[in-house]
């Protein structure tokens, strides 16, 4: 790993079928398939984003949304710097599930976790069940980034990760600037409590 880059683990959480994998595939590989299979467990992808101050290497955990994997999600978010909570704007239930995910992160997630909310499937806006205003004010109330996205049309995907990258950079408690203008995530602050917790639950 060279000096000019930083690493940041990001985890995507949300109900099954809201498009988590599609968002990741759009971001990482710029591809889209309408009928991808459900994710099993979690898959790990990475992508480097260039910022004016240097680069951030995103390590992305794309988790499975099925209920049976729910209890296992913690091992993926325990070490994350940022979490993207995804819901489907055409599905009210997925919005409520997203709120529950947030609750869980507050209770059990690592401290200083950056949270972003993505209202996915923007291309189906005519079937919208969750008003943007509602989601936006929820996001504001919890201090989260809010973005409407569409993995299908690329809408908002790039910006979503850019904003997260910027926030990671700004978040002084977990990121320190170095002399050569690089960014480094100091894992000691954000990761240790989570790891310790996880061991407790899995033993």
């Amino acid at each position: 790993m060279d000096d000019n880059s930083a690493q940041a683990k990001v985890v995507l959480l949300g109900e099954a079928g809201v498009g988590k994998s599609s968002i990741v595939l759009r971001f990482v590989a710029d591809t889209y398939h309408s009928d991808i299979e459900p994710t099993i467990g979690a898959s790990f992808l990475s992508k480097i984003v260039n910022l004016s101050e240097g680069t951030i290497k995103f390590g992305i955990w794309d988790t499975a949304g099925q209920e049976r994997y729910h209890s296992l999600a913690r091992m993926y978010y325990a070490e994350a710097v940022a979490a993207i909570l995804v819901y489907d704007i055409t599905n009210r239930k997925s919005y409520e599930a997203m709120k529950n995910w947030h609750k869980e992160l507050v209770e059990q997630g690592p401290k200083n976790l950056i949270v972003a909310i993505a209202g996915n499937k923007e291309d189906l806006v005519e079937k919208e069940q969750v008003e943007m205003e509602e989601a936006k004010s929820f996001a504001e109330s919890i201090g989260a980034i809010y973005k409407k996205t569409s993995a299908k049309t690329r809408y908002g995907i790039e910006q979503l990760f850019k904003e997260i990258a910027i926030k990671i950079k700004d978040n002084r408690s977990i990121v320190t600037r170095e002399k050569r203008g690089s960014i480094r995530v100091t894992s000691a602050v954000s990761q240790q409590p989570g790891v310790a917790k996880e061991k407790k639950c899995c033993s």
Binding site: E37, T39, I40, G41, S43, F44, L45, A64, Y76
Partner: peptide, 16 residues
Amino acid sequence: LLTSYASLRSTMSWTP
């Protein structure tokens, strides 16, 4: 598992 989920081939997974 490997036969059913072609998506496993393009990423690395950590799955229970």
